[in-house]
């Protein structure tokens, strides 16, 4: 019996040693991220020049809005794949000590963002034309409005290593439609550095 106990103790000791070493490993959860799709919709954008606060209210389909207050919000939805989990290594069940913040590894980088009109907008922009040139885009970091070229430069400068990814693109129109109250619909297009193209179409609404 003594030998059996000794054997069991030796084995259990080795097991516990490995278990404790596993427990002290506090790797945080890491995710690989791929773009899933775009979701574009119009919002009423109201900026308070005094306080600096702004509000964004989603416009319902067939609503009418002034182009001064119109914003097009494009949400970039993603797939997140868990690649590393913070847990003890014996048994795949228990969590280790307090995990750190999650880490995201973005597998795709954005090369450009464009916006097109589906209907005749004004004398310069007809159905199917790109209207990025008459849009201002918000740089969410600096809260400044940028033109299309400057904004695309910002998008291209994003670095995977910085664990930073733009969750949404927000733009507003600088010109109104030729026919006030006309029905309008827009297509947003995002291209990755690998040449993959994502598109989404807003629902129809009226602009004056």
């Amino acid at each position: 019996m003594k030998k059996l106990i000794l054997t069991s103790f030796a084995f259990t000791g080795l097991t516990l040693t490995a278990w404790i070493i596993g427990a002290t490993s506090c790797a945080r959860n890491t995710y690989n991220v791929l773009i899933k799709n775009l979701n574009s919709y119009p919002v009423r954008y109201v900026e308070d020049n005094v306080s600096g606060f702004s509000t964004r209210e989603v416009i319902q389909e067939s609503d009418t809005i002034s182009y001064h207050q119109l914003g097009i919000n494009t949400q970039i939805e993603t797939h997140k794949f868990l690649t590393g989990i913070n847990q003890l290594h014996l048994g795949n069940q228990a969590l280790a000590f307090k995990p750190g913040p999650p880490r995201y590894n973005f597998l795709e980088q954005i090369r450009s963002f464009h916006i097109y009109t589906l209907n005749d907008y004004n004398a310069s922009y007809h159905a199917g034309d790109e209207i990025s040139a008459i849009c201002d885009f918000m740089d969410e970091d600096s809260r400044n409005w940028l033109d299309a070229a400057a904004y695309n430069t910002v998008l291209q400068s994003m670095n995977i290593a910085q664990e930073y990814f733009v969750p949404a693109v927000f733009c507003r129109l600088k010109q109104g439609p030729a026919v006030p109250g006309s029905q309008q619909q827009f297509i947003t297009e995002l291209t990755t550095t690998d040449g993959v193209i994502f598109r989404d179409t807003t629902y129809t609404f009226r602009i004056y």
Binding site: L4, T7, S8, F11, T12, T15, L16, W19, L90, G91
Partner: peptide, 17 residues
């Protein structure tokens, strides 16, 4: 302790006794 290791110990006891 992991269930696999418990099984290992029990196996040892059963075979070796």
């Amino acid at each position: 302790m992991n269930i696999k290791n418990i099984i290992c110990c029990l196996t040892l006891m059963g075979i070796a006794a």
